[in-house]
Design a protein around this nucleic acid. Structure first.
Lengths: 215, 215
DNA sequence: GATGAACTGGTACGAACGTACGAATGGGAC
DNA sequence: GTCCCATTCGTACGTTCGTACCAGTTCATC
């Protein structure tokens, strides 16, 4: 549905993917405003009419481009979950690994991922796609937590995901160095895991002490 | 610079602000793609030519709209820092208060703020604006921490900011209930503050225990 | 209340847009 | 090999875009 193209030929599928990739490139550079039939085709090195053959409307094209990119991201995250580690994984190894997911490819790419995720989440047809991406990230974090021996906790994984995403977002303001951000993320993850290990009673007690000390 | 308008009249300034507000509305609904001279003027209930009088180019208008919104947000955050509290503020009160900053106005607004912040951070002319907004948020969190008696720590405030931002982002996937998100955020903040109170040695020890338990 | 600058708003123009069309091309099934 | 249909791609149409223009109106200053 959507497109008139039937994609019976291999080359055709390749060209279609090239158009989607070109659309994402343009989106990264100038937002959705930069995505036009002609611009996408030109970027992909294809004739102007190629876009109308593969996509019913320009909105379809944008949707597909965003969706395909988020799907790819989800697939990447999922495959990372399968990676084998040596038996002894430290928290810091795990944190560094997870940090890399969002941050290692550079702030520009992180900004792109965030923008795409955000744009996708606001398109009704892509909400499932966005939700799956977030689930994949939480699964990845969950599997890392399992590796370091933490008792299973969706709550903890969710908090760490929020921390990762928030760090990526915070970094966009451009006023922090990359390594200080990585340090911040690592130490915050350590704190969250430690609090989880110590248990709610210890946390309650520490906060009660804080309150007493203030008085 | 930028605009030919000199804004010597009050009504003129009001109209200009109305145009900026209309631009933000359209941005919220359809992204930067939806911002056109005519659409903005129509939304503001003003004649089509009004936009060209106040803004040199459409890109200037978009920049100004984004910048003005982020500035307003910064001002809101800064004024919240000045709010007086009763003497005894619990961590949960503080967490709830801070949560409200990002979340209370509903997920749609949070998505808008995130989108605008992200878009602004990618426009060179607005990077200072975006950085100031992030600083204002960190100051707000820092002042709340001071109120609950935590020893001053930029590190802790930064981690909590990341947590807030990340929670707002995570929520955009639309698969979590608003209250579960609030609960997640509150408990994660509690954990971070507790870990800070307990100190790095305790955290190290807890993580070491975790490692031992796994073996 | 006169005067000049600031502002208003209708209209116009070239460029770029989304989309449609049709002739030319090419690959797969028989 | 030949036939058919998917694909390619130049071209064209109507629309909407960004921007410019200018006659009319309103306001601040005197």
């Amino acid at each position: 549905m959507g497109s008139k193209a039937q994609l019976t030929q291999n080359r055709s599928r390749v060209r279609r993917d090239e158009l989607l990739a070109a659309a994402i490139e343009l989106f990264a550079e100038g937002g959705s405003r930069a995505i036009t039939h002609r611009a996408v085709a030109a970027r992909a090195g294809l004739p102007p009419a190629s876009t109308t053959y593969y996509f019913e409307t320009i909105d379809d094209m944008i949707r597909e481009a965003l969706g395909a990119h988020v799907d790819q991201w989800t697939a990447d995250l999922t495959s990372l979950t399968q990676v084998e580690f040596e038996a002894d994984v430290s928290i810091d190894d795990a944190a560094a690994f997870v940090t890399a997911v969002f941050a290692a490819r550079g702030p520009d790419v992180a900004a792109l991922e965030l923008s795409i995720f955000l744009a996708a989440a606001r398109v009704p047809e892509l909400q499932d796609t966005a939700a799956k991406a977030m689930q994949a990230l939480e699964s990845l974090v969950g599997s890392m937590l399992a590796r370091v021996g933490a008792t299973d906790s969706a709550h903890l994984a969710a908090a760490i995901v929020a921390l990762i995403a928030g760090t990526a977002l915070r970094r966009q303001s451009g006023q922090y160095s990359e390594q200080s951000e990585a340090l911040l993320l690592t130490s915050a993850i350590r704190d969250l895991v430690a609090a989880h290990v110590l248990g709610p009673d210890t946390v309650d007690h520490a906060l009660a002490e804080l309150r007493k000390a203030k008085a």
